[in-house]
Amino acid sequence: MIDTLRILPVHPSDEKEKSNETALGVEEGGIQSAEALLLARYFMYSQVYMHPIRRIYDIHLRDFLEEWLEGGKFSIDLSDHLVITDNEVTSAFLSAAIDKNSNGHLHAERIVKRKHFKLIYERNPNDIEVNPEAGKAVYKALCEHFDAEYFRHDKYFQKGEALDFPVRMRDDQIVPSLAISATLKAVPIVAMDYVFANRDILNKATKWLRENHDDIIKPEKEEEIDDEKT
């Protein structure tokens, strides 16, 4: 892969552009290596970084920090900020998990005793077809019917632009990667939309969600548009 990296002229965006720009690209022989790396990155995101259990522990940790830290935030004073390391935080939530009177006890207990919230809803193609904001609608409905404290909503879309970089072909023509690689065109965008529920209410909420799913995910009726200015 490294051997095929090149600084190449950027392909024109349209028929009228005559660009003198350059960008990092690859020679034609390196395109399969680029595909392999980008697919590996996709799998790493979708199977590891976006794994629901990993995500819910982030949320419990954030909830704990909000209650444990003074004012709910890390200090912006440099010396105060630097004395808080992972060690202090880990030690604090271990103590808080035992002591019922500690700030953040509930959240610390969820982390330490593995009582994390469980996945009750995740985005799927059928629901997205009806309403791209289905996860938000499910979370809102659950909070209204039960109690917001029992649920957490977590949504993430991949940032950045398409995997389009210049490729120098064997005949020296510079072409966009998306035009010559069917694989790159098909690499999915990392997108997740999870709703988590407290174990205490999980079964009841799951049953209610199944019974009302179709009504819940219907898009909200559009409100009158305000004539707000940008």
């Binding site: 024109p12 349209d14 028929e15 389009d164 510079i174 966009p176 998306l178 035009a179």
Partner: peptide, 10 residues
């Protein structure tokens, strides 16, 4: 994204 005739962007 709809790829275009070479060498143009999508």
């Amino acid at each position: 994204l709809e790829p275009q005739q070479l060498p143009y962007g999508p």
